[in-house]
Amino acid sequence: MGDNPGVLVLNAGSSSLKYRLVAPDRPDDLDHGLIERIGEPGGDATDHAHAVATVVERLSGQTITATGHRVVHGGDRFRAPVLVDDEVIGAIEELARLAPLHNPAAAAGIRAARAALPGTPAVAVFDTAFHATLPPPAYTYALDQELASRYGIRRYGFHGISVRYVVDATARLLDRPVAQLNLIVLHLGNGASATAVRGGASVATSMGLTPLEGLVMGTRAGDIDPAVVFHLARVSGLSLDEIEDRYQHRSGLAGLCGDNDLRVVQARADAGEPDAALALDVYCHRIRHYVGAYHAVLGRLDAVVFTAGVGEHSGQVRQQSLDGLDALGIVVDPARNRSGTGARVVSPDTGRVVVCVVPTDEERAIAQETAALLEMNGSW
């Protein structure tokens, strides 16, 4: 066995398994990889059990101290990482009613890991858990409350693993305690969300019951009049499943201009294509809308933080999203915004609100939270 005990982080999708072996106190990976097309003809594995067994075989020279699992939806039951047992797996499967595309795969991955690594502790880390601090006015929908309570309809929020990691990294960048910071974290990838964070606690977030609400995303519409679905059902002949498919996979940037990759959209907009320019304008307008709203929620704002693929790499999106917010003390320095890598400040030194870029690392966050829980329980 290897000399570096690590956490095997597993992110199970319906037909893929992403894995990283991470030593929480080391900056580099011990190993990483991807199992694709699970259960498909010619795929890497016949099912999740086979996929995890393949990963364990690949890592046979390494020491796996624990496994950490990303679970998208913890409902209002899981407010922090938990040590996995049969009851926890059952609860994750029950919560599939709220996340039918994600939780079943996560449960399958956890079961497979427990079978392939008997006796190795497994920890579930939930995307929704960071938002358990949302106050009732922020998580309650103005819906018939008996109906909402019966079916668990409320704002849960997502990207919490990433946001928690970025909040801590931002505090280090600014050399200030987390407890003293009011932040707006903009996680901009193919999925996108905004979160208002006061003293390390989520107090408002853009995603809701599902990851469909909020910002414009690669293929998701984000905020939309709820009556659109009723209108489409009446006039288009589309079934509810077909409308949901449009919302999930053929809206957002893809719906506006045919491309969901922001880099392609930017290039097309720069080349003068009107539909791509409109898509970029709508995308940035929605971000600006949330920054203004969350500034009001927080009262005092210390920093706007960009993270994830688009947030970390697109200076144009950062600039365009914050244009016109000078009166709020939010200004981007053009030279700083065009250059640099890693965690950095892209606002002028004179700005009242710091604008910064902070890379996220969800797998490392899962490894760290797994190790912290096991250390607290005396198992690390």
Rank of each mutant, 00 (worst) to 15 (best):
N103R: 08
A105G: 07
I110Q: 02
A112L: 10
A112W: 04
A113M: 02
R114W: 01
P118C: 03
V123T: 06
V123G: 04
V123A: 05
A124D: 08
V125K: 09
V125D: 08
F126P: 01
D127V: 07
P135Y: 06
P137V: 07
P137R: 09
A138T: 08
T140V: 08
L143N: 02
E146M: 05
A148V: 03
S149Y: 00
R150N: 01
R150D: 09
R150T: 13
I153G: 13
R155D: 09
R155T: 15
G157V: 10
H159T: 14
H159F: 11
G160Y: 05
S162V: 01
S162W: 01
R164H: 12
R164C: 04
Y165W: 08
V167Y: 13
A171D: 08
A171S: 10
R172A: 15
R172H: 14
L173V: 08
L173M: 11
L174W: 13
D175Y: 04
R176Q: 14
R176F: 05
P177Q: 03
P177Y: 09
V178A: 03
L181Y: 12
N182R: 15
I184C: 13
V185M: 06
L186V: 02
H187Y: 03
G191R: 11
A192D: 09
S193H: 04
A194C: 12
A194W: 00
T195D: 11
A196I: 09
R198Q: 15
R198G: 06
R198P: 03
G200K: 07
A201N: 14
S202Y: 13
T205Q: 02
G208A: 07
L209H: 13
L209F: 15
L209M: 15
T210D: 07
T210C: 05
L212E: 03
E213A: 15
L215W: 10
V216T: 03
V216N: 01
V216K: 00
G218R: 11
G218D: 11
T219R: 08
T219W: 07
D225Y: 06
A227I: 03
V229D: 00
F230L: 09
H231L: 14
H231V: 13
H231K: 02
L232W: 10
L232R: 05
A233G: 09
A233S: 04
V235T: 14
S236N: 07
S236Y: 07
S236M: 04
L238P: 00
L240A: 13
D241Y: 01
I243S: 00
Y247L: 09
